[in-house]
Each structure stands twice: as C-alpha cells, then as structure tokens.
C-alpha cells in the first residue's frame, strides 16, 4: 500500500509561488546573455563574431544581444574569451517588432485561459518544457491556465517548432478553428525564426511566416517559468519585458 496521500501532506506545498514571489531555486532558468560593455570596439566585434547564431551585435564598444535569435549554445557564457554577462532571470517574453503594442486578452481571461499546444515540427525540447508546466512544481492550473485538446475551446495557440511543411496546414486549420479573441504565442527560437533549422524547403522558418504572432518567448528551449511568463503576458497579468530589436526581421 502506498502512502502517497500521507507523503503529500507531509511534504506540504512544493509549488512555486512564481507570479507572487520571484522563484530563485537553483536551475529553474539557464539565464540569458545581456548587453555587455567591452574595453574596445574591436573586442565587441570579436564577441559578436563568436556567436554562431548572429545573436550578438557590436555597437561601439558594447555587444548587444538579440535574445530572439539566441540558440543557447553558451559560447558567450562558458567560452574561452570575450564572454558576455548573463542574467539569471526568466521573464523575457517579447512583443513582436513592427506590430505595435501588444493588446492583452480581456480581463475575463485572467483566471481562465485555455491553451492549445501545437507541435509544429519541434525537436521535443520546447515541448518538454511546456509539459513541465503541468507538473506539481510549476502547476499552471493554480493560475487558471489549462491545456485543451480542441481548438474550439482554446484562447491561446502555443506553437513550438519551426513550422515544418507537414505541419503548416494543420497549424493554419487549428488557428482557423479557434474562436475569437485568440492569441498566438511562439515558444522557442525555432518557432520565432526557425532557429537552427532556419528557412528551408521543409521549414517555414518560424510561425510568423504563416500566422500573425502576438508574443515571443525566446530560449532554446525556454525554461518553464519563461513560458509561464509568456502565458501570463498573453492575459495581461504581466507585460512583455523585452522589445525585440526593431531592425530585426522575423523571417
């Protein structure tokens, strides 16, 4: 006989208090590179050249980061030289550049948000992180966020993966089948701009090339709390923290 009930009582609440308190447990987030001031412009250029994903841009002596392009290779974190500073937060949901200010869902959705997740050719990493939202630690249900299997009941379309050719039509159909108002949340570097897959004959190179994306959650993969922040941002309970650089095309 298992005493799971008793164990549960004994252990008490282990869920994060995230939106209320900042969760600082070790390992909840890989952090993110942030703009770093170098000694000279030349060093900034070297730092930018070190990034395989063109996520670092040298501007004067500073190296700026376009987080939406970052594939978390960690070269600029654990590499040999020209390292960037890393922040250990996880609230980095972005509004889409060129689409104006994000219009959150009405307040009725604050505590009742139904999410449909579409795996548009994802490698499994982002999907795995999305799945963590269901576990007792992150427990998104306490925030009134639920996964649903049918688009008819969904308010948010959460897309992971670069939109492979085979998933393009299902993705479009899912979006069409959703009732208004509806929002699209692109999770992970692939869903934002194709990530390591880029744009090829079998990959559309990001959700934005087929559907009007509302918010982006960078990361490869983003940690669960970043995704949770994204979902809270969809309802307007949090606001998107970063603005994607306006020069950046999302294709």
């Amino acid at each position: 006989m298992s005493f799971w009930f008793w164990h549960g009582l004994k252990k008490g609440v282990r869920s994060t208090h995230y939106p209320r308190e900042f969760e600082s447990a070790a390992g909840v987030s890989p952090g993110r590179p942030v703009a770093t001031e170098f000694d000279s412009a030349a060093e900034a250029v070297v730092a930018a050249a070190n990034c395989p994903a063109d996520a670092i841009v040298a501007r004067g002596s500073a190296a700026e980061v376009k987080l939406e392009r970052c594939i978390y290779c960690q070269h600029c974190h654990y590499g040999n030289s020209h390292l960037l500073e890393w922040h250990s937060d996880y609230e980095w949901t972005m509004a889409v550049p060129g689409r104006g200010k994000y219009q959150p869902l009405p307040t009725a959705y604050h505590r009742s948000l139904h999410v449909i997740v579409v795996d548009a050719g994802d490698c499994g990493a982002c999907l795995h992180e999305v799945k963590q939202l269901n576990n007792p630690l992150y427990n998104m249900h306490r925030l009134g966020i639920f996964l649903t299997a049918t688009p008819r009941a969904a308010d948010v379309l959460l897309v992971v993966g670069p939109v492979s050719e085979n998933m393009r039509v299902p993705l479009l159909k899912t979006y069409e089948a959703m009732p208004a108002p509806k929002r699209i949340l692109a999770v992970g570097a692939c869903a934002i701009n194709g990530g390591v897959f880029g744009r090829t004959f079998m990959s559309a190179g990001g959700v934005a090339s087929v559907l009007p994306v509302d918010l982006l959650v960078p990361g490869d993969p983003p940690p669960p709390l970043a995704i949770l922040h994204g979902l809270l941002a969809v309802t307007g309970r949090k606001s998107p923290v970063l603005q994607a650089a306006s020069s950046e095309g999302n294709s």
């Binding site: 579409v118 299902p170 159909k173 899912t174 069409e176 089948a177």
Partner: peptide, 9 residues
C-alpha cells in the same frame, strides 16, 4: 467553420 478533424488536411 469547417468541421474540426484534428487538423488533418
């Protein structure tokens, strides 16, 4: 809308 059939083409 058209019938929802799991997004199959």
């Amino acid at each position: 809308h058209e019938l929802w059939a799991g997004g199959i083409p």
